[in-house]
Every structure is written in C-alpha cells, then in structure tokens.
Design a protein around this nucleic acid. Structure first.
Lengths: 204, 204
DNA sequence: GACCTATATGACCTTTGGGTAAGTTACCAC
DNA sequence: GTGGTAACTTACCCAAAGGTCATATAGGTC
C-alpha cells in the first residue's frame, strides 16, 4: 500500500524528537498520562506510532523524556530562587514569581509532576520522585525555616505544612490554567493581594 | 457449566446495593475513576459483573450512585457548619474539624469529588459540579467574607482565594491519607499548630 | 551503480475493560 | 404443582490502546 513518507529523509531525528516532546508534554500535561494515547501524540505530530516507539521505546519512555526535559527547567529554577536571600513567606512568593514566569508559555508542565494517573512504580515513578524530592526538598527547607521561626520543629507538622504549601501552589497553577488570559505578572500581583488579605499590611 | 449462586435468592437488593457502593466508593476514591474497573469492584464484592450492570446500568451509573450517597454526607456537614456563627479563619477551621470527623472512617470519600480522571461531561460531571457548587458556594461565602474584612472585593481574587482554600483542604486530606495512623483529633490539633505558625498567637 | 543508514509507514497482534446474551434456580403466590 | 420473579452466573462481544512486524526509499558514501 502507499506509504506517504516512508523512505524519505524527513526531519532530522533531534528536531523530530523535540517536536514530539513539545506535543507529548502538552498532551500529558493537559489530559494526564493515562488519558493520553501514543496514537494521539503521533496524530498531532503528523507522524506514525512506530516512529515514536522507535525513538522513545514505550509510552513510559516518552513520558520520562518529557519529565527529564521539563523537570530540569522546573527544579533548576526553584533551586536558583532558593539560593536567594529571601526567607519565610517572602521566599515562597519569590518561588511563585519564578514559577509563573517559567510556566507562562507552558503551564501544563507543572502537571507532569503532579499526575495521579502516572505510573506509581518503575522508571517514571522514580523520575517523578527524583524531581519531587528536589522540589519538595526546597519546599521543605523553606517551610522548616518558617516553622522554626514560629517555634515548631515537629517533623509531622513540617511535613503537613510542606504538603499544604505544595497544595497552595498546585491550586494556583490549576486556577491559572482555567484563566489563561491572566499573565504571569497578574498572577503574581494577585498572590500579593491574597497574601495581604490574609496577613494584613505586614506582608509588605 | 457450574454457576455457583445463579438461581439463588441471595442478598436482598438494597443490602447488596449498599455493599457494592461501600466497595465501589473505596475503590474509586483510592484509585480514581479511570483506574478502577467494574470487574475489580465485582471481585471484591464477591459477585459478578452483570449484577452490577443490572443494578447501576453502567460504570458511570455506579460512580454517580457513589457520589449521590457520599455527596449528601459531605455537603450536608459543610452546610451545617456554615450555619454556625464562626467567620473568617475560625469558620475555615470549623469546616476542617467537621470534615476530619466525617471522613475519619472513609477518607477516600473526599477524592470522589476531586478526581481528574472522572468524566468531564455527562451525568457524572453534572453531579460533581452540583456538589462542588454546594461545597464551593460555602467556601466562596466564607472566603468572600474574609476578603471583604480585608477590603478586597475583586471577583477574580475571591475566585483564586477559594481555589487556594480548597487546595489547602485537598492537600491536608491527601496528607492524611498518607498518614492514616493520625486521628481526626490529631489532624485538627495539627491544623491549629500550622495556623499558629503562620499567624502567630492571634489565631487563638 | 551498489550498499548502507536514517527516517518513515500501514497493517497487524494482544490485552484489557465496558458491556450484553443466555441461562439457572430458590422462593413465593396462586 | 405451576408460573413468575428476583438474584445471580458464565461466556462472550467489541472497541481501544500499547506495542511490533515487515517494508519503502531518499540520501550519502565508496
């Protein structure tokens, strides 16, 4: 039968891989791992399924490549902010600002690391755990410092507060994805206003 | 072939339905809608798949029945608390206390309403939206009042703050499910300590 | 021109899960 | 005793999705 582009020197592999990962990241990040099919990614990339399997080995391999690409961006940025001088809530706001800016062109990137339908064992789980550890470690540091300032060093309290902080970030990201017309700058200003509403003027 | 319980007057239908919903709620709430199969629910209930389809019509019908049963519990409790006199953060803490108590025997109930793998159109989506509206409406009332006290009546800010509040609740529920040894009372005390850590003594 | 490799495809296989067909029989009413 | 119904089952169907097989050929090297 006719095979449209078989036997062609098409797109160089590295370019094609980047294109595939752009589309796959958006699909996985928007719909979740389980609800995204390799066939859909291939369709949207204008290629065939076997090519994706040739390059990435499996659906999990594809997801892992997406994580590796996006995770470095995310974790590097959060680590960069953590090296700053901000502490406590100020550090939290700085982290949010950096993430809004980073994620503005690709807000779905966040969801790659917080997807309940991603595999919970194997390479993907290990990769997610690795990035979550990097991200959570910094969150934990920031939270531990804030809790220490408040005189609380209970490990379970710190763990719960870290979970709450990540839950706040997650809900803001989700709200933002439901309001894509809001810019990163507007989101940051909104966060400052919410902070002020909660703490009054001393958040300044 | 042998059909073990075919042709028996087994369990009265209402009793069997309750049993099925207990198991289905736990499976859906623990694994999510998509990752829960009707076959698994049947296995754990010790019955066959066709019986579930006979009683509930479809997988979506089964989920909807779970939502209807659990949603009334959740929404009724939150509405009961909302009729109290507490305002602002005090009301939020009262809501948490009520929910911890309600959910202690069945923490997965929360997840039925916050499952990204549940269908986003059709009857289930409508049902979830209905309960989410009841729950979110109360959250929105509480948040609107808090924001008004702070001098902020921007609708988008209120919407974002409501999302943050629900994100906090969601992250606490998830943390709790990862620490099932903690009692509802301990969770409430922990929340008070986290609150104190953030606001200092005036949260008392 | 021959050979090799890179880039690519349609067709196919297998498994899984939503759902149904056809059938069984205990219990109850008449 | 007969008929009807409720509660129930095994076997089966179909579609979808993960993944593979066999094949095509443009372009580059020798």
């Amino acid at each position: 039968m006719v095979r449209p582009n078989a036997g062609t020197k098409g797109v160089p592999r590295l370019d094609r891989e980047t294109q595939i990962l752009d589309i796959a990241s958006e699909q996985f990040g928007t719909h979740g791992f389980a609800a995204t099919s390799v066939a859909t990614v291939a369709d949207k990339a204008g290629i065939s399924k076997p090519l994706i399997y040739n390059y990435f080995g499996s659906k999990e391999g594809l997801y892992e490549a997406c994580l590796d690409r996006g995770g470095s961006l995310l974790a590097d940025e959060i680590e960069r902010i953590a090296r700053g001088e901000a502490v406590g809530i100020e550090r939290g706001m700085a982290t949010l600002a950096g993430m809004f800016t980073l994620l503005e062109p690709q807000p779905y990137l966040w969801r790659l690391f917080f997807d309940p339908t991603a595999p919970s064992t194997g390479a993907i789980a290990d990769s997610i755990a690795g990035y979550a550890e990097r991200i959570g470690k910094l969150a934990d540091e920031g939270v531990t410092e804030l809790m220490r300032l408040a005189g609380n060093d209970d490990p379970l309290d710190i763990s719960a507060m870290t979970a709450v902080w990540l839950g706040i970030v997650d809900s803001l990201m989700n709200w933002w994805m439901e309001h894509p017309e809001e810019s990163a700058e507007q989101m940051m200003q909104r966060c400052m206003r919410l902070l002020t509403a909660l703490f009054g003027g001393d958040a300044e």
